[in-house]
Computed example of a mutant assay.
Amino acid sequence: MATMTEHTLRGFSALGFHRLAYTQWMPEGGLPGRTIVCCHGLTRNGRDFDVLAADLADSLGARVVCPDVVGRGKSGTLANPDLYGYPQYLADMAALIARLDVESVDWVGTSMGGLIGMILAAQGDTPITRLVVNDVGPLVPKAALERIGTYVGTNPVFGTVEEVQRYLSLVYAPFGDLTDAQWRHLAEHGYWTRPDGTLGLAYDTGIARAFQTQPITDVDLWPVWGMIRCPVLAIRGLQSDLLTAEIAQAMTERGPKATLFEVADAGHAPALMDPAQLAAVRDFLR
């Protein structure tokens, strides 16, 4: 059985160093020759991947690393919220890959984590050898970003973990038909305890700055998509408003010509906890 350990490293921004936390899942028998990085969505954290990470470590004999992007989970925050953005996230993930001391990694990214993976995979001499993008593509529609902007950074206050669970099961209902135990897992790793003892969601509300200070428009990364050379699996929730059917179909025809896997009972974004979803990722990476 795979074992999980927690680690940290230091990232660097214009205002100095910050802590980056990550979990590492190791297969039984020691350090493998293969590493997979799983990177979460905008307001989530690396513990979202516990089920997938354990499955991949056991089935593929791989080391699976799940970071908390700065401002989320057990990672530190940035003193200036204007620094939250892809330039910082890319630099931090490059530092993580350097820490892992490997020449190449496979990348699984949900939403924001998928965009990070796409941009990394498009670079010259990239270490990304296989890429899984979960419910995100090279065109992010304005309407989906406006919907996300209605809840990101709202800073709700909770009294108990049960209240956190109820909130997550409503706001993130498009994750799919999760069991109570799965929602509980997301809740237990999805809150911070405030100084007054109340609970808040486990992310810095400063990550919402971009939604508040700039006009929301479509995000067009088709030129980036065209520079990706590695094999790509695109996962799409059939009810997704962020990865539409038209965008997903175009992803199979342009650039790296992704393989498409669709999830019937999910929107944005499938939780990657269901056996069929686990099998799709496992088989592609195999």
Score class of each variant (00 low, 15 high):
T3V: 11
M4H: 13
H7F: 07
T8Q: 15
L9I: 15
G11C: 12
S13D: 15
L15C: 08
F17N: 12
H18V: 10
R19A: 15
L20K: 09
A21C: 12
A21E: 10
T23C: 05
W25G: 11
W25I: 08
W25C: 13
W25Q: 12
E28P: 00
G29S: 07
G29D: 14
G30Y: 08
P32I: 05
C38W: 15
C39S: 15
H40I: 05
T43K: 08
T43F: 13
R44F: 11
G46M: 05
D48L: 04
F49H: 10
D50V: 07
V51A: 09
L52N: 04
A54H: 12
D55T: 15
D55M: 02
A57I: 03
S59M: 11
G61E: 10
G61D: 09
G61F: 09
R63H: 08
V64K: 07
V65R: 00
D68I: 05
G71V: 06
S75K: 05
T77D: 07
T77V: 14
N80Y: 14
D82C: 04
L83M: 13
P87E: 08
P87Q: 10
A91L: 12
A91D: 09
A94H: 13
A95E: 14
L96H: 07
I97T: 15
R99D: 15
E103C: 12
E103L: 09
S104M: 09
S104T: 14
V105R: 06
W107L: 14
G109M: 09
T110R: 07
G113H: 10
L115S: 12
I116C: 12
G117V: 10
G117K: 06
G117P: 07
M118N: 07
M118A: 13
I119A: 04
I119D: 03
A122P: 09
G124Y: 02
T126F: 06
P138R: 00
E146N: 00
R147M: 05
I148G: 01
T150F: 01
Y151C: 01
Y151S: 01
V157T: 09
F158L: 01
F158A: 00
V161E: 13
V161P: 06
E162A: 13
E163G: 00
L168F: 06
V171F: 01
A173W: 03
A173F: 03
P174C: 03
G176S: 04
D177P: 00
W192A: 02
L199W: 10
A202T: 05
A202F: 08
T213G: 06
P215I: 06
I216Y: 09
T217G: 09
V219D: 14
P223K: 07
P223T: 08
I228E: 11
V232T: 12
V232W: 08
A234F: 07
A234N: 13
I235Y: 11
I235V: 12
Q239N: 15
D241Y: 09
D241A: 11
E246C: 01
M251P: 06
E253G: 04
R254G: 01
G255L: 00
K257D: 02
K257I: 00
T259E: 10
L260R: 03
F261K: 05
F261C: 01
A264W: 04
D265T: 06
G267N: 01
L272Y: 02
P275D: 00
P275V: 01
A279V: 01
V281T: 03
V281P: 00
R282I: 04
L285P: 00
L285K: 05
L285G: 02
L285T: 03
R286H: 04
